[in-house]
Simulated scan of single mutants.
Amino acid sequence: MKALYIGWLGHKNVGDDFLVDIFRQQLSLNNINWDIDKTLANSSIGDLREYDLIILGGGSLLTVPYYIELCLKASKLGIPYVIWGTGVDNRDKGISTKIYEDLVVNKVKKGSKVIRLDEVVEKANLIGVRGNITKAILNNDKAKVIGDPGISFSKFISELPTVKEIEEFCSDQKDIVVVNWGTSYNNIFGKSEAEVEKELERAVREILNQGYKVIVYPIWSEDIKVIKSFVDKFENSNIMAINQVYDADEIAAMIDKAKFTINLKLHANIISMTRMKPFISLAYGLKCYDFAQSIDSMELIIPTDEVTQDRILDKVVHIKQNYEQIQNKFQLMIDKYYKRQMEYVKSLSLLSNYK
């Protein structure tokens, strides 16, 4: 069985790249030994007919017409495709809020183009989606909520690496807060990363005043220069910038040092959750709602057009007061979605009979 995994890969973005590894590990755990190719985002794909199966991988790919058309092209060629842990996204706050409140939408628009979700869902052989919001948008009983695949990340870790610069920074045993910051080129709720950064800076200054040490890190290569500029404002030895993109295992090792995290990017929140560390999500798109709602943690998000120093610090207080309850909920959700993802992968094995 030869399969093609398609996703937004090859852009030095941990949040997308580590999902491929999780998929392979889930297959291996279920004794499914397929030959898996992966395609880089925006790269040309050869003849699809050399593949027995197409996997629409994790991320927010159901909002991108290119991936939808690729699946439909496979279907026309008689090649089955599946949807694995995929979700939707939208960066318009009004639309996203309405979707979240209604949970009843059957089409997603990108500009003036209506993405052909009805057709791609109907022709899929198996559908597992990130969250209840995505399921409601697809409006099809075939879609099962299996959670973001990153939720099961820690289930596949046997030993984490030692990251020298993190060990040195944390050697004095002070409490640590890990912050993920970066850029989405203002494609966020409110369209102003500068405003979010201003309020985040004020909140981090107060967190430092409370005696914490702070680590600020990127999850995408484009984040690095933004982080350096942010940390340079402090002139404080108790805050450090990570000037490279760690792999997912290294990020997990770093987050294990933290009491809690504050994050812009979605998978920074997901890795924090899977390491049992409460997070504050600076929610910049509908996908952040989709994830938080799926783990019953909407109280941990602040939409980026509503971020203020006070709101961040209020979330810090909430985390301190409810620390064990949050961790217990995370564990329940990790176990819940790991089970669903394993059931999904077992169903995949039946597709081996296609060729």
Score class of each variant (00 low, 15 high):
A3R: 05
G15M: 00
D16T: 02
F18R: 00
I22A: 01
I32T: 10
N33S: 13
T39I: 13
N42C: 08
I45Y: 00
D52S: 15
G57M: 00
G58R: 00
V64N: 12
P80I: 03
V82H: 00
G87N: 03
T97Y: 09
L103F: 07
V104P: 01
V104K: 13
V105F: 06
V105M: 04
I115G: 04
E119W: 07
E119L: 11
K135Q: 14
L138A: 06
N140K: 10
K144H: 10
K144Y: 06
G147N: 07
D148F: 04
G150Y: 06
F156K: 11
S158D: 14
V163H: 03
E165Q: 14
I166N: 00
E168Q: 14
N180K: 08
G182D: 01
G182T: 03
N186V: 15
N187I: 13
S192W: 09
K198A: 11
E199W: 07
R205M: 06
E206K: 15
Q210R: 15
Y212V: 15
I219T: 12
K228I: 13
S229I: 10
A241I: 04
I242L: 11
I251P: 02
K257E: 06
K259F: 08
N263K: 09
L266W: 01
A268L: 09
I270M: 07
T274I: 09
A283T: 04
C288W: 02
Y289N: 01
A292I: 05
S294M: 03
S297G: 04
I302E: 00
T308R: 08
Q309L: 10
K315G: 05
K315Q: 12
V317E: 15
Q327K: 15
F330H: 08
D335S: 13
M342S: 12
L348V: 11
S349D: 13
L350G: 08
Y354I: 15
